[in-house]
Simulated assay, not measured.
Amino acid sequence: MSTPTVLFVCVHNAGRSQMAAGYLQHLAGDRVAVLSAGSQPADQVNAVAVAAMAEEGIDIASEQPQLLSDSAVQEADVVITMGCGDACPFYPGKRYEDWVLDDPAGQGIEAVRPIRDEIRRRVEALLADLAG
Rank of each mutant, 00 (worst) to 15 (best):
S2I: 14
S2C: 10
T3I: 15
P4V: 12
P4N: 14
L7Y: 07
C10G: 14
N13Q: 14
A14V: 14
G15S: 14
G15W: 04
R16I: 10
R16K: 15
S17H: 11
S17R: 06
M19P: 04
A20G: 09
G22I: 11
Q25N: 15
A28R: 05
G29K: 14
G29T: 10
G29E: 10
G29F: 14
D30V: 13
D30Y: 11
D30R: 13
R31P: 01
V32L: 09
V32G: 06
A33S: 13
L35K: 05
S36T: 12
S36G: 12
G38Q: 03
G38L: 05
Q40C: 07
P41Q: 10
Q44W: 03
V45E: 03
V45L: 08
V45F: 07
A47S: 14
A49W: 01
A49H: 01
V50S: 03
V50E: 00
A51L: 11
A52V: 05
M53C: 07
M53S: 02
M53I: 07
A54I: 03
G57I: 06
G57Q: 10
G57T: 08
I58C: 07
I58S: 01
I58R: 04
A61L: 06
P65N: 07
Q66M: 08
Q66D: 00
S69T: 15
S71F: 07
A72V: 00
E75V: 14
E75G: 00
A76E: 00
D77W: 09
V79G: 01
V79N: 00
I80A: 03
I80S: 02
T81V: 02
T81L: 00
M82G: 04
G85L: 05
D86T: 10
D86E: 13
D86S: 12
A87F: 09
C88I: 01
P89T: 10
Y91W: 02
G93D: 06
K94T: 09
K94F: 04
K94M: 11
Y96R: 10
E97C: 03
D98W: 01
W99F: 07
L101K: 03
L101S: 05
D102N: 13
D102A: 15
D102I: 02
A105V: 12
G106C: 10
I109F: 13
V112R: 02
R113S: 05
P114A: 13
R116E: 03
D117L: 08
D117A: 10
E118C: 06
I119E: 02
R122P: 01
R122V: 01
R122G: 04
R122T: 01
E124W: 05
A125Y: 00
A125H: 03
L126N: 05
L126T: 03
D129T: 13
L130E: 06
L130C: 10
L130D: 04
L130R: 09
A131I: 01
A131Y: 03
G132A: 15
